[in-house]
Every structure is written in C-alpha cells, then in structure tokens.
Design a protein around this nucleic acid. Structure first.
Lengths: 329, 329
DNA sequence: TTGTAAGCGTTATCAA
DNA sequence: TTGATAACGCTTACAA
C-alpha cells in the first residue's frame, strides 16, 4: 500500500502552505499563476486526490447521488432501468458525482432508507425512477428540502418538483402516424389497464392521432397487464374480431413481442410497433419507440447539479422519443 | 432541515461523555449494562446515525463497495447483471455496506478509476463481474492489496484470488442428462466460439455427459457470437443436416430464443434448453439453466466482509445452477 | 498573494 | 467503567 498523499504532502513538495494547495483546488483564481503551476505539478506528480470524507466533513457535501435499483420484474423492461443507470453513472461521473445504490421493499422502507443515507452519508441528492399519484416519497423529500429529481412525471401535479420524462404520447402518435402513412386504417392499441400515468399517456397519443384522422370510432383499444404471454393472448382476441386490425401500437415491447407471436402464428399481415426499443426488439426486428435514456439520465444529472449549485434552471424536462423502423411496421 | 444529531447530542441527552456513546456503538461489552441502555434509548429517541465521513477519517474504512455497471449489449443477458446488482445491494445493505457504481471504457480506464475511487472515497472493496485470461485489473488490485472478489473464475489461475462462480458445466450437464432421460439421442450444442472460459465450461458439461453415455461422436457442436438472430441462423443450419438433432443445449437464452424461433418456423419437434433463466425465458416458456444470482451476490458480500474483518474463509465458492423445466424440453 | 488557526464528527489512547 | 485529549484531512475565516 502506497503512502497516503495528503494536502500536506503536496504542500511540502511544492514548497507552499497547505492553504495554498487548497486554494489551487477550490479557488484557483486567487493564486499566482506560477505558484498554481508548481502546485499542479506536485499534485500530478504525487497522484494526489482530495479525500472526500475530509472535504465532506467541512462542506457537508458528499458528491454522492443515490438511486434505487428495483428488482427486474420483466427482463425486457428491466433493461430500460439498466441503460438509464449506466447513463446516470457516466454523466454523474463527468460532473464529479458518484452513484450510490439502494433497494427498498416499499415506500415506507424507502423513506427510512432516505433518512439512513442522509444521516450516514450526507447524500447530496436522490434520483427516483417513476412516481405514482400522491407519492409519499417525494413529499417526504420535499418537506426536508432534500434535492431530488424524478425520471417520470408526477401525473397529478406537473410542477410539484423537478423531473425529466419522455413524451410517451408523442411516441405513440409518431408510431400511429407512420402506420396511417403506410396505408393502415384499422389501427388497434394494446395497452395497460387505465389508471397508470405512463400507460394512459401513451394511449392518448394513439387516440388523438386517430381522432385527427377521423378514425377513432372503430379502432379497438385493448388492455392487459404487461407480459409476452398476455400480449399474445390479447392479440389473438383482436385477430378474431369481425374486422381485425391491420396494425397494432403497443405500450411496451413485452406486449409487442407477444402480439408479434400471435400475428405470426395466425400468419396475418399485421404491423406491430413496440415501445422502449429494448435490445430484444432490435434482435427480432421489431419496430419500436425509442426512449433517449442516456439523454434522460444526463438531464437528470444536469438538473441536480444546477439545484445543488443554486443555479436557476427549467426544472421540468420533456424529451421526445424516436420511432425506430425495423421489419414489423 | 432538522438539527444535526451528533454523538455529542446523544452524550448530553444520556448524561455521559461522547466517548461512552462511541463505546456503546463500537465496543458495547465494555460499557455497564445500565449505561448502555440509557445511551441506546437516547440514540433511538434522537434518531442518531453515525456520520460515515467522520468515522471514515478516523478508521480509514468507508463501508463502501464499488461495482462496475456495464453497458447492456443484449437486453436478455443484461438482466443477469441487473439481478446480480440487486442482490448485491440488498446483502451489502444488510452487512452495513453500500454499493457504489462506476463505469469504464476499458481495462486501463477501469484501473484509473480504481485509483480515483480509492484515493477519493477510501473504498473498502471491489466486486468485478467477469475476468479474462491474465486480467490486468485483478493484478493491479492484488499488487496494492485492495480487497476484491470477482463474480466469475479466473480461468488461468483458479486460486489467484477470491471468487464466486456458478458451475456452468454442471448446468449444461444437468440439461443434457434431462434430454437423455427423455429419450433424446442426437443432442446438439449451440455455443460461443471456443476461447471464452464461460462458454468452454458450459460446452464441456454437455460434451462429457454425452461421452459418459457413449454418444459424443455424432453430436453436432455449433458456435456463433451471441444473439437471437445468430441463434436462429445457426439452428436453421443444424436442422438442415442429414441427421438433424432432436434436441439442442444452448449456451445462453439469447441463442436459445433464436433456436426456438428456427424450430418453430420449421415446425420441427426439437427440444431447446437455454442458459441463465432470464425473465424472457420464463415469458416464452423456455426451459433454461438458472443461475442462483442472489446467492452469488450474497456470497460475494460474505467473502468481502470476511476479508475486511480478517476472518479466514474459503476464498473460492462454486455454486450449482438449477434446471428450470418449462415447455421446450 | 500567502500563511495561521480553528473546527467538522468520529475513534484511539491514555489517565482517572 | 468512564472521561479528557488528540488526531484523521480538509476548508473557511482571518491575519500577515
């Protein structure tokens, strides 16, 4: 184990006081150019790195951001969190922050964990993935003035706190428009049961686009829990209708994959569009709406750093998804 | 923001010195029972939590473990890392450790990141997922006596450092035996190109089981890069053989999914077994070898805490996977 | 522009 | 069994 290099080591090496080294690090403009250079050289020569624990004790800031990692319910959708986490880690890194993971069984446990993390590690901020109507977690954090950003809108109060989200309605609208442009007229929607903000939003994009084309009356609107098997089952029902749809916009790649399966079994020429552009979609050639996850993660970090540095920023960011065309539509 | 509760607050509240509070926390046996109780009550009453930064400054230990998060190449296999991470976070939590994430472009960058994390955050240990032949990262860590565990064996030197792994050969052996038991005789293997430790190990389990049954000569052994499309393509070739296999053991769920696709298109009654038991496998009814990821993560944490506390432990852990029977075999 | 002194919350050492 | 004191490495306030 190499000897520990502290600010004192650097000071000795550069023939200055410890304070001057600290100034070079935290207020470079106040140090004479020549001194600054000499100190910088000593820093790189010795491989000095400021000790975060000591810094934190003085400043109260840890340069640590916490994110919850959820159990993967569905390997397909799980990859979304995976990619978001990766983007978050990368951009946080670039901004000088590190990402700390935590898990929680439920909202109550999660709040207890906040308390824990805040008390023990002086966490600078939290990133929550997804919020429900009347989320107790955001209320708790807001009350204590803990900086946080959610990836996902608070559907009941759009300006309650900073968030980054992807415009799901714009995504399904784009998908529906594409299907209209390629000649489809009976375009179904395969979604989740009404009540989830995300699901309703995506359904709305499909509905309004059809309505704008004067085609909303006849279009079947099916709903089921998420899953490949569920998608296949519901799609079979749709194909059995008197006037089956010629295309279907799905709320997720899982459902789309199921739908695709049903369509292939029935050998029906039905176009299918998924949502999330998961790697599985890419693998099977499924056309899908792609969420800009890396960008979303980057904007989360931007919002957070602005918040922490007290800079004013637009606290709500809505990103546009993009339709990735493949073989199925 | 609530007032900060420090050890001094607790000491005042319980009418003892700061040191006694510290003793209650770190050396309870040295404190008189009655005093201990009074201090404990003050701790819970005030919601006191030891400040890690201060503790770390004194002890040099951060109770932080770093894990690398990799970009998801394939959404299907990505979920493996996802589940491992979740397990790791949970068991680390229970052991009083937190998980810090980092990314790296390549081995060199990763080593620079070690240096960074070690210098800035005084990380206690690293968990590496996967090691190659002659991995420079493990060499770097070992040289500096930084505690670490890998999830995955170092194939060239089995006892070079502590690791946890899943016995892939046992998994494919079990799959092959199952196929033999259900009457199959021409059992192919669909794997990765030779040279990867993991892939070769899984292939070996299939080969030795067939050899033990005296059936190794005729069995086709196909190899390709990972991916659904690749699996489908190679399986098509296998089905076109003069004597096509009646069953196929695959090195991954991705390849198995592709194989399944080819089998269904050809309407051939061929059994398929995957590897990793990803949620997608569950969704489509694919029989697959399941890695005990939560257990693996837990053992990693166990090994690490033993290492950090200087307790002797068996430094290598090989876990048995389990064959999950579904519809395809 | 540079240096000195104090203190952040904890634990190790030593004395009571 | 308990308490006083110093020290960990850093930054902020202030003096030189």
């Amino acid at each position: 184990m190499a000897e520990k290099v502290t600010i004192a080591t650097v000071a000795r090496h550069a023939q200055v006081s410890r304070q001057t080294v600290s100034n070079v690090l935290n207020a470079p403009h106040v140090v004479r150019e020549e001194t600054r250079r000499r100190v910088q050289e000593a820093i790189t020569a010795l491989g000095y790195r400021a000790n975060q624990a000591a810094r934190q004790m003085r400043t109260g800031r840890s340069r640590l951001i916490a994110v919850r990692i959820e159990p993967t319910r569905d390997g397909i959708n799980g990859s979304v969190l995976d990619r978001f986490l990766h983007g978050l880690t990368e951009t946080a890194d670039a901004a000088g922050y590190r990402v700390l993971l935590y898990t929680a069984r439920d909202d109550g446990h999660e709040i207890a964990t906040y308390d824990d993390l805040l008390g023990a590690y002086d966490l600078d901020a939290f990133v929550l993935t997804g919020t429900d109507h009347g989320d107790p977690r955001t209320a708790w954090l807001a009350e204590r003035e803990v900086p946080f950003v959610t990836f996902g809108r608070p559907w009941d109060a759009p300006d309650a706190h900073p968030w980054v989200d992807v415009d799901g309605a714009a995504g399904t609208a784009q998908a529906t428009r594409r299907l209209l442009d390629t000649g489809h007229r009976r375009i179904a929607f395969l979604g989740w049961p009404a009540g989830s903000g995300v699901g309703d939003d995506r359904r709305a994009g499909w509905r309004t686009t059809l309505a704008a084309a004067g085609l909303d009356g006849a279009a079947p609107d099916a709903a089921t829990e998420d899953g490949i098997a569920e998608g296949e089952r519901v799609m079979r029902d749709l194909l059995a209708l008197d006037e089956p749809p010629t295309a279907v916009v799905c709320v997720s790649d899982s459902l789309a994959l199921g739908a695709l399966q049903a369509v292939r079994v029935a050998a029906a020429p039905v176009a299918v569009v998924g949502f999330d552009d998961t790697p599985v979609a890419a693998a099977v050639g499924l056309t899908s709406v792609s969420q800009p996850l890396a960008a979303a993660a980057a904007r989360c970090v931007e919002l957070l750093t602005a918040l922490l540095d007290g800079q004013p920023t637009d606290p709500q960011v809505l990103l546009r998804p993009e339709l990735v065309l493949r073989h199925t539509a």
